[in-house]
């Protein structure tokens, strides 16, 4: 049974410099029916957002032009968009910084894809609900 398609397909921007990780995320989120865009580093992410604002950004931190201030920069060009951060073995301080900079959710790699998917779905629903 098809989902009620009276909502536009969500546009998700995936920012990750590791190729395999990027493939994994794309494979997983493709199946969810999202429209996916990919970026390999902070600069590409920035450009992608400038071109068209996504409905959700799923991003790593540790990559070229990345880091925690990269989140603040993203926020300036994507003020309403939910940002989900996944990063390897970050610590409590990093988490606090990232959330303060504007991240909507934070996950430590390795993260269960199932958990990630749930979070993304929730955020998108909430967002779409807010837009209506």
């Amino acid at each position: 049974m098809a989902l009620v398609e009276n909502r536009t397909t969500a546009r998700v921007l995936i920012v990750e410099d590791d190729r395999e990780m990027r493939n994994l995320l794309c494979d997983e989120f493709c199946g969810m029916g999202y429209q996916l865009r990919e970026a390999r580093n902070g600069d590409e992410a920035f450009l992608a957002v400038l071109q068209s604002e996504p409905d959700l950004i799923l991003t790593d931190l540790r990559m070229p032009a990345g880091g925690d201030d990269y989140i603040s920069r993203l926020r300036t060009v994507a003020p309403k968009c939910p940002i989900v951060v996944i990063t390897a073995f970050g610590d409590a301080t990093l988490k606090a910084q990232v959330v303060k900079a504007g991240a909507s959710a934070y996950f430590d790699k390795p993260v269960r894809i199932a958990d990630l998917k749930n979070c993304v779905q929730q955020l998108l629903d909430h967002q779409q609900g807010a837009e209506r």
Binding site: D18, M21, L25, D60, A88, F89, P110, I113
Partner: peptide, 21 residues
């Protein structure tokens, strides 16, 4: 450790993710 964390965490996520997939 911090450097390692990243180099290990991401491949680990790939393994985990692919297994789940």
């Amino acid at each position: 450790a911090s450097g390692m964390a990243h180099e290990i965490g991401t491949p680990m996520n790939v393994i985990l993710g692919r297994a789940e997939y």
